[in-house]
Every structure is written in C-alpha cells, then in structure tokens.
C-alpha cells in the first residue's frame, strides 16, 4: 500500500478548558473517501479544520502527503511556520464550507480563477480556460458571469467545489456541504462529489447524509466527545456498529 495522504498522530486540541479533540489517530489513503459522522459538538469540524491548520493543535501531529502541517520539526521541537509557508501548504488542501463562502463581489468565473492567479501565479488567460472547463464539468458552464447571489444554493455549492478543484488539490475537505441546502438541491451537489470520488480524489467529508456515507465513502469514522469511537467500511460501521454510542446515534438520524 502507498503512503497515506493524511495522518493524525495523537492529535489533541482544547478551547480553554473544553477538550474538543482527545488524542485522535487516523489515516486516510490516497484516493480514499472518508466520511466523518457524529453528534453535534463532537469535534468533526474541528478535526477537519486541523488538516489545513485553520485551527492550531495543542499536541500530536497532522501530516499531509508526508509534510508536517503548520510546523517545521527540528529534533523534538516543532516551530510554527511563517504565514507564507502555511499558506503554501493550504494551497493544495482545498476546503468546501457549509455556507459556501463564495466571494460575493466576484463573478462565478472570477471566484474560480482568484486563487490560481493570485496564489499560484497562473496566467489569467490560462486560468480562465481551466476554470471554464471545470465549471462546465459541474454543470455551470452557462453561469460564468453571474454573481453568487443570483445562484441557488446548490449552484453556489457547485461553484465552491469548482473553486476548490481549480487549485488542483491533493485532498478536499468538505464540512457539511449539503446541510444549508433545500432537500431538492442536495442531490446535484452529491452527484458532483460522487463523480470526484470515482475519479480518485482523496476526500474527507463531514456529513449527515447517511446514504452518501454508505454508497460513496470507503470508510466511515464515527466521532463522539472528541474521540473516534469506531472507524471502518460503511458496511460495518453503519450496518452493524460494534459500539453502543454508534448504535444510539444511528437510530436517531435514520
């Protein structure tokens, strides 16, 4: 088996006195789609945000593609990296948010080319062609000049995914990508995500969509109280959980 894409090694994180992550160990293989499920406040978003150093961890280590995230290791010491280098690490780890967070003052096309031109230094012409192709793929080839507020939620989230893809990421983090959508719009976003999964994109997905976790994800991790209670193929974790807490949670959501 090849080297893992993401490694969490005994990661802990607290907000003041509240310990949100308690010694997380987790590996995600390249091309794997992992879903994180669990009750509200269990630390799913926090875990995801540690992958690209949007949150600082208190102990342990997060590695992406063999690279320690946010720090430079010298012996037993880890020095926090300067902002520029952290930004460079983040450039290849894309993230899709629950509230889309599209840049409201930019058109769809401008949203998608912003980071490639500004961060990676891709020439504008080149970036536009690439962006148009990606937008075509997510079914928004006719919306290039629209502003985000003119789009439906499902369309906005597909633009957000296109914006993520434009950075040619090694990994995409999804934090409840369909939770802010009307039920009839959930499908169009999940379809795009399913296509990405089939193309071999590495994805970590916090979701409440049990059908998506069951049908698309290779593994499901159930979190509760800052710990990963159990993690395995959906057939085991969802259909035949070995822990009482997992069973209680699943009976509530289904």
């Amino acid at each position: 088996m090849s080297d893992p894409m993401v490694v969490f090694d005994r990661v802990s994180k607290s907000y003041g006195a509240l310990e949100v992550l308690k010694g997380i160990n987790l590996e995600v293989a390249p091309g794997e789609v992992l879903s994180l499920i669990g009750p509200s406040g269990s630390g799913k978003s926090t875990l995801l945000r540690c992958v690209n150093h949007l949150e600082r961890i208190d102990s342990g280590a997060v590695t992406v593609d063999g690279e320690l995230i946010g720090y430079r290791q010298v012996g037993n010491l880890a020095y926090e990296l300067p902002e520029k280098l952290i930004a460079r690490q983040r450039a290849r780890i894309a993230m899709v948010f629950q509230n889309f967070n599209l840049f409201g003052h930019m058109t769809v096309l401008e949203n998608v080319i912003e980071a490639p031109t500004q961060v990676l230094g891709v020439p504008r012409r080149h970036a536009e062609e690439h962006a148009a192709a990606i937008l075509e793929r997510v079914g928004l080839g006719d919306k290039l000049t629209s502003y985000p507020r003119m789009l439906s939620g499902g369309q906005q989230q597909r633009v957000a995914i296109a914006r993520a893809l434009a950075m040619k990421p090694k990994l995409i983090l999804f934090d409840e990508p369909t939770s802010a959508l009307d039920p009839e719009l959930v499908g169009e976003v999940l379809d795009v995500m399913r296509a990405l999964a089939e193309e071999g994109m590495t994805m970590m997905v916090v979701t409440h969509e049990m059908a998506f976790a069951r049908d698309v994800c290779h593994r499901v991790a159930f979190m509760d109280g800052g710990k990963i209670v159990e993690c395995g193929p959906p057939g085991e974790v969802l259909a035949n959980p070995s822990h009482e807490r997992t069973r209680t949670f699943l009976s509530k959501v289904n």
Partner: peptide, 19 residues
C-alpha cells in the same frame, strides 16, 4: 467565512484583506 475561504485557498492575510 470570507476570510476563512481565502485562507483555505492559500491566500496570506494581507492578500485576503486586500482582494
């Protein structure tokens, strides 16, 4: 969320402020 999205795309603080 705008600043978070900018950060997650690899923009530095200065760039996300300005752009």
């Amino acid at each position: 969320g705008q600043r978070q999205a900018a950060k997650s795309l690899g923009m530095t603080n200065g760039k996300s402020l300005w752009r």
